[in-house]
Design a binder for these strands. Structure first.
Length: 639
DNA sequence: CCCGCACTAAACACGA
DNA sequence: CTCGTGTTTAGTGCGG
C-alpha cells in the first residue's frame, strides 16, 4: 500500500497530471488523469484496502494514505522495540534502546502528522524522485493487492465489522507489505547467494525500496524527525544501534538514500550493509510486535499465507518457521515471478536510474530533473513530475492527457523541461496543447509554422524523429482547431492562439464528480503544487487535477474548495506566467465564459481591432491574448 | 453502442 | 518540379 500511495502521490504529479496512467495505466491522458490514475493508483489500492467498507471520502483517502506510510514506519520502529524488549530479552540495554523507539513512534503516529507535514515529507521534488520506481511499484502493488485480498479472504473468518475491519485490514495489509518486501528481498538475496542474481544489494533494493520508500522518502524523513526534535542523525544512529532489522528490507533504501544527504532516518529503509540476517530478525520482530499473539498470516495453528498451510503450534513457532525456511517455500512461484520481472525491469531501466532521480538529485532549481539523456533516450520513463500520462512513444494509445488533466502544461513543462528535452519520451500533451504552449511562450504570442516545429524539436527529444508524422499532425491541428488562428504577416503567416476557443474545447466543468475528486486526490503529489496550480490558473486551463494535489491543510483548504466549484468558473487571473505574458494580456479571464460557442469566424470578426475591450464578452475585462495579437496585426484579418 | 476527441495517414491545393 | 504550407477527409483507438 505504502508504495502505492506513494507512487500515486508522485504520479499524480505531474503531473499529477496528468497523470497519469502510463506504462501500465495506459496512457490515455484521460484515463491516466482521471480514471487511469484512480484505477491504478491509490484509488485502486484504497479500494482494495477498504473496499469492503465502501467508498472513502477524499479526505479519508488522504488520511488513509498518510496512515499507511506512517504506520509502516511506525511498524518498523515498533518491531525494533518489540524485538529488543519483548520475548525473552528484556535487558536494561534494550530497554534503553527501546526508550528511544517509543518516542519516535509517538512522533510517527498518524494522528500527529498533519497533511502539511505529509507534504513536507513528500515534497514534490522528492516525490518526483521516487517516480522512477512507479512501474515497479505498480507491479508490486498488484501483487500486494492480490495477496492482500487473499489474506483478507482468509482472515475474514471472524471480522466482519466495518470500521474495525478496516483497522485490522490496514494493519494486516501493512504487515503483508512488509512481509512481501521482506520476501522479495530475501528472495533476491537468496538468488544472489546462489549466484543467480548478480545484483548488488543496492541495486536489488532499488526497486524494492521503492515500495516503502515511495511512501516515505528517506531524504524527507529528516524533516519528520527534526520536527519532533529528534535530530535526523541521532535517530538514525539509534535505529542502527538497536540492531534494526529494518536494514534488511532497507537494503533497498540504501541506494535511494545514497546521495549526499545523510541517509534516511527512516529506519526501515536505511540499509547499513544489507545484511541478510537482518531480514530474518526483522521479520521476526515484525511478526511479533504488533499484535502479540496474532499475525496476519497466522491463524488457527497454521500459516495462512496463500498456498501455505504449514502447521504451527503457536505464533512463536510460526514466526520461527516462517522466515527464510518457511516463507520462501511457500511462495516460490510468486517470488520467482516477481524477481524475474523485477530484474527484467531493472535491467530495462538501467540500474542507476532510480537512484539517479532520487530526491537527492534535485537540481538547484528545486526541480527534479529527469535522468539525463545519456541515460536512457528511449526509455519509456515517466517524467518525474508527471504521473502517468502517456509517454511511451508509440502507438496511438498515448495521446491526450494534457488536455483533460495535465492542463498545466506550462508548469509541467517547466518542471520536466529537461526530461522531455533529453528523453525520447512522448510528451503527455496533445498536439493542440503543445502548439498552444509554444505560441504562448513567445513574447508575441505568435509563431510561424516553422517556428512551431522548431519549438517542438527543441523542447522534446521525441520530436526529433518521425518528423513527417508529427509535423503533419501539427499542421493538421493548426488547421483543424478553431483555437489556432492563422494571421497573415508581412513575412508570411503566423499562428496565434485564440484562448477563448481553446478554452471552449476543453472540458468545461469538473463538477464534483467522484472520479474527479478521486483524481484530485490521486493527483496528490503533483510536483510543484503551488507552481502548477498557479500555472494552471494562468493557463486558464483547468486546474483540475493538479490543484488537488495540494491537499495540504493550509493551501488545500483554501484551494480545494475553489478547485471544485470554481473550476468551471473563470479563474482569477494569475499572471503566473508573467514571463511571457505582456501586461496587456490577461488571458485567463476569458477562460470559460465563452459567450458564444462557435463561429470562429464570428469570433474573428468580433475582434475588431479598434475596440480592444469591445469584445463581446461582457464579463471579460480584457481581450484575450490572441486577440491582442491578432488585433495587433490588424490589417490582414479584418480586411 | 454511440459519440466525441485525439491521432495518424494521406490526398489535394497553392505559392515560392 | 520540388518543397513548404494549409486544408480536408478517412480511419482508428479510447473513454465517457
Amino acid at each position: 500500500m505504502m508504495v502505492e500511495s506513494a507512487s500515486e502521490t508522485i504520479r499524480s504529479a505531474p503531473s499529477g497530471q496528468n497523470g497519469v496512467g502510463s506504462l501500465s495505466g495506459q496512457t490515455d491522458g484521460s484515463s491516466g488523469g482521471a480514471k487511469g490514475t484512480t484505477a491504478s493508483g491509490t484509488g485502486r489500492d484504497m479500494t482494495t484496502g477498504a473496499d469492503s467498507n465502501g467508498e472513502m471520502s477524499p479526505a479519508e483517502l488522504l488520511h488513509f494514505q498518510q496512515q499507511q506510510a506512517l504506520q509502516v514506519a511506525r511498524q518498523f520502529l515498533l518491531q525494533q522495540a518489540s524485538g529488543l524488549s519483548s520475548p525473552g530479552n528484556n535487558d536494561s540495554k534494550q530497554s534503553a534502546s527501546a526508550v528511544q523507539v517509543p518516542v519516535s513512534v509517538a512522533m510517527m503516529s498518524p494522528q500527529m502528522l498533519t497533511p502539511q507535514q505529509m507534504q513536507q515529507i513528500l515534497s514534490p521534488p522528492q516525490l518526483a524522485g521516487v517516480v522512477v520506481g512507479i512501474a515497479l511499484q505498480e507491479y508490486y502493488k498488484k501483487q500486494q493487492e492480490q495477496l492482500h485480498l487473499q489474506l483478507l479472504t482468509q482472515q475474514q473468518a471472524g471480522k466482519p465489522q466495518p470500521k474495525e475491519a478496516l483497522g485490522n485490514k490496514q494493519l494486516a495489509f501493512q504487515q503483508q507489505l512488509l512481509q512481501m518486501q521482506q520476501l522479495q528481498q530475501q528472495h533476491l538475496l537468496n538468488l544472489q547467494r546462489q549466484g543467480l542474481v548478480s545484483l548488488q544489494p543496492n541495486q536489488a533494493s532499488g526497486p524494492l525500496q521503492t515500495l516503502p520508500q515511495a511512501a516515505v522518502c528517506p531524504t524527507d524523513l529528516p524533516q519528520l524527525w527534526k520536527g519532533e526534535g529528534a535530530p535526523g542523525q541521532p535517530a538514525e544512529d539509534s535505529v542502527k544501534q538497536e540492531g534494526l532489522d529494518l536494514t534488511g528490507t532497507a537494503a533497498t533504501a540504501t541506494s535511494f538514500a545514497a546521495p549526499p544527504k545523510v541517509s534516511p532516518p527512516l529506519s526501515h529503509h536505511t540499509l547499513p550493509n544489507g545484511q541478510p540476517t537482518v531480514l530474518t530478525s526483522r521479520r521476526d520482530s515484525s511478526s511479533h510486535e504488533e499484535t502479540p499473539g496474532s499475525h496476519p498470516l497466522y491463524g488457527h495453528g497454521e500459516c495462512k499465507w496463500p498456498g501455505c498451510e504449514t502447521l504451527c503450534e503457536d505464533l512463536g513457532q510460526f514466526i520461527k518457521v516462517q522466515p527464510p525456511a518457511h516463507l520462501l517455500p511457500c511462495h516460490p512461484p510468486q517470488l520467482a515471478k516477481e524477481s524475474e520481472r523485477l530484474q527484467a525491469m531493472m535491467a530495462h531501466l538501467a540500474a542507476p536510474l532510480p537512484v539517479t532521480v532520487s530526491a537527492a538529485d534535485s537540481f538547484p532549481d528545486g526541480l527534479v530533473h529527469p535522468p539525463t539523456s545519456a541515460a536512457a533516450p528511449v526509455t519509456p520513463l515517466r517524467p518525474p513530475g508527471l504521473g502517468s500520462a502517456s509517454l511511451h512513444g508509440g502507438g496511438p494509445a498515448r495521446r491526450r492527457s494534457s488536455d483533460k488533466f495535465c492542463s498545466p502544461i506550462s508548469s509541467e513543462l517547466a518542471q520536466n523541461h529537461e526530461f522531455y528535452k533529453n528523453a525520447d519520451v512522448r510528451p503527455p500533451f496533445t498536439y493542440a496543447s503543445l502548439i498552444r504552449q509554444a505560441i504562448l511562450e513567445t513574447p508575441d504570442r505568435q509563431l510561424t509554422l516553422n517556428e512551431i516545429y522548431n519549438w517542438f524539436t527543441r523542447m522534446f527529444a521525441y520530436f526529433r524523429r518521425n518528423t513527417a508524422t508529427w509535423k503533419n499532425a501539427v499542421r493538421h491541428n493548426l488547421s483543424l482547431h478553431k483555437c489556432f488562428v492563422r494571421v497573415e504577416n508581412v513575412k508570411g503567416a503566423v499562428w496565434t492562439v485564440d484562448e477563448r476557443e481553446y478554452q471552449k474545447r476543453r472540458p468545461p466543468k469538473m463538477t464534483g464528480s467522484p472520479t474527479l475528486v478521486k483524481n484530485m486526490i490521486s493527483g496528490l503529489s503533483y510536483g510543484a503544487l503551488n507552481a502548477s496550480y498557479q500555472a494552471a490558473l494562468a493557463e486558464s486551463s483547468f486546474p483540475l487535477l493538479n490543484s488537488p494535489g495540494m491537499l495540504n491543510p493550509g493551501s488545500a483548504s483554501s484551494l480545494l474548495p475553489l478547485s471544485h466549484d470554481d473550476v468551471g468558473a473563470p479563474v482569477e487571473p494569475l499572471p503566473s506566467n508573467g514571463s511571457s505574458s505582456p501586461p496587456r494580456l490577461s488571458p485567463p479571464q476569458y477562460s470559460h465564459q465563452v459567450q458564444v460557442k462557435e463561429e470562429p469566424a464570428e469570433a474573428e470578426e468580433d475582434r475588431q481591432p479598434g475596440p480592444p475591450l469591445g469584445t463581446p464578452n461582457p464579463s471579460a475585462s480584457g481581450p484575450p491574448e490572441d486577440r491582442d495579437l491578432e488585433e495587433e496585426l490588424p490589417g490582414e484579418e479584418l480586411s
